[in-house]
Design a protein around this nucleic acid. Structure first.
Length: 427
RNA sequence: AGAGGAGUGGCAGAGUGGUCGAAUGCGGCGGUCUUGAAAACCGUUGUACCGCGAGGUACCGGGGGUUCGAAUCCCUCCUCCUCUGCCA
């Protein structure tokens, strides 16, 4: 959520940056914010004055009663009625203005970083780096992962359909082992990189949804538990970052680095066709997430550090990959700068997004009221960042396709200590 | 899940309708004393919003209500503790 004071101070810059997202009416939207906030201040001032008068009067009445001047007290009481009426009216006006302001703020996305290219869709993302020396030359008759999955009997989509529904596969045999291996490998790497492992709830309340920005904008993306006002998490970012909601940390406690594994649940409403085939898009999937809370001056260095961490993972998995700088149109609502990682899935000849690493600057921290206190006890909003490290199913898809051989599917070296086998074999 | 109890400043803990943003203790910060430290003593020590400032307003788990006036009374929700039940 933007800070109105910042908007006023950097009006032209913010407008220009928001236009990179394709927000053509950015100027009007920001102007509206400022004028609403102006009204809010004015109304609050008036209300405060009325309340000051009421408080004063109430004190006097108390004194009069104490000293036995009943008649005077009753007379003074009569004066309060009008003040009360005004206070009620102004109070309602203020609440309404505050709500309008919040509504607006909730609807305006984060200001893109200066390096974000303008653009409408994923086609306009900037390819920062492509490392494709691991791209395999597949033999004729190489199969897409969904065919390999049935051939090797490692995931059962039909069973998942039966037990839950489409998009909830059941991993089994070496498939289940491989998923568990990846999770452990990713967590171990995160720990080596200095992240503290946490295992958060996978169900969150409304406040948490607002804190990281899933609510109100993306309500349709989450599964709701409507009888208790809770949601299944779409990513571990939500519970892990919300640990620090309403928290003031000491400056020397930064950076805070947490990592956690959770299943993630996404409704993916309206998804259909080839890109939901097999493991390409699921309603439930496993992911290890890394989260950092840092000093504002350090956040872009940390973003690079996190990108490097993810890059190491895909490299170690021996997958061809590329790194994209997301354009304004593809940038997430809450993010200022995002790098996506895609791995090449050689049989379906597609790049699959497996990680998204973002700097949210103060956008989340402002909603979360997540601040740090410096040596002089000055408080300021911290910066938050997170990244997938990594999402499992698409990595699995690429591994299956790229590593298929006549004898079976080769398991990358780094995972072998975790799987206990180096080849996925037919049943 | 049922019955009972409780939620107050960083922590502990008073306050049951009127100068209460809130006693007191601990902790923190500054100072005196000391070669240094401890002890002792003195002072200071919540957050947010509005205002150039003086200052004002709000906050005693959250929300709503009664009242001229609410930490204090009422309703509701949440959380914690104890007992009973259930369960991995």
């Amino acid at each position: 959520m933007l800070q109105v004071a910042q908007v006023e101070e950097n009006f032209d810059l913010f407008v220009e940056r928001l236009q990179k997202r394709g927000l053509t009416n950015a100027a009007e939207q920001l102007q509206e914010l400022i004028s609403l906030d102006g009204d809010r201040k004015k109304t609050q001032q008036q209300l405060d004055d009325i309340k000051a008068k009421s408080n004063q009067l109430a004190k006097e009445i108390g004194q009069l009663f104490k000293t036995g001047k009943k008649d005077e007290a009753e007379a003074a009481k009569a004066q309060t009625a009008e003040l009360k009426e005004q206070s009620k009216t102004l109070g309602e006006a203020l609440t309404s203005l505050q709500n309008q302001l919040l509504d607006r703020l909730y609807q305006i996305p984060n200001i893109p970083h200066e390096s974000v290219p303008a653009g409408k869709s994923e086609d306009d993302n900037e390819v920062v780096k492509t490392v494709d020396d691991n791209t395999p030359k597949l033999a004729d008759g190489a199969k897409p992962h969904w065919d390999l999955i049935s051939e090797y009997d490692i995931i059962d989509f039909e069973l998942g359909n039966k037990v839950t529904g489409a998009g909830f596969p059941i991993y089994k045999r070496q498939g289940a082992r491989l998923v568990r291996a990846m999770i452990n490998y990713f967590l171990d790497e995160a720990q080596k990189a200095g992240y503290m492992e946490v295992q958060p709830p996978i169900v969150i309340n409304e406040d948490s949804g607002y804190g990281t920005g899933q609510l109100p904008d993306k309500e349709g993306q989450m599964y709701g538990i409507t009888d208790s006002n809770l949601y299944l998490i779409p990513t571990a970012e939500v519970p892990i970052t919300n640990i620090y909601r309403d928290v003031i940390v000491k400056e020397d406690e930064l950076p805070i680095k947490n990592a956690g594994y959770t299943p993630c649940f996404r409704r993916e409403a309206g998804s259909w066709g080839a890109h939901v085939r097999g493991l390409n898009r699921l309603h439930q999937f496993d992911k290890v997430e890394i989260v950092q809370i840092v000093h504002p001056e350090k956040s872009y260095d940390v973003l690079q550090e996190m990108v490097a961490h993810v890059e190491k993972l895909v490299k170690n998995l021996e997958l061809p990959y590329r790194i994209l700088r997301l354009c304004g149109g593809d940038l997430g609502f809450t993010s200022a700068l995002t790098f996506d990682f895609e791995v090449y899935s050689a049989a379906q000849e597609k790049w699959l997004e497996v990680s998204s690493v973002s700097n949210f600057e103060t956008f989340q921290a402002n909603r979360l009221k997540l601040r740090y206190k410096d040596a002089n006890n000055k408080k300021a909003l911290a910066h938050t960042l997170n990244g997938s490290a990594l999402a499992v199913p698409r990595i699995l898809a690429a591994l299956l396709e790229n590593n298929q051989t006549a004898d079976g599917i080769r398991v990358p070296k780094v995972l072998q200590p975790y799987t206990g086998f180096d080849l996925i074999t037919r049943p």
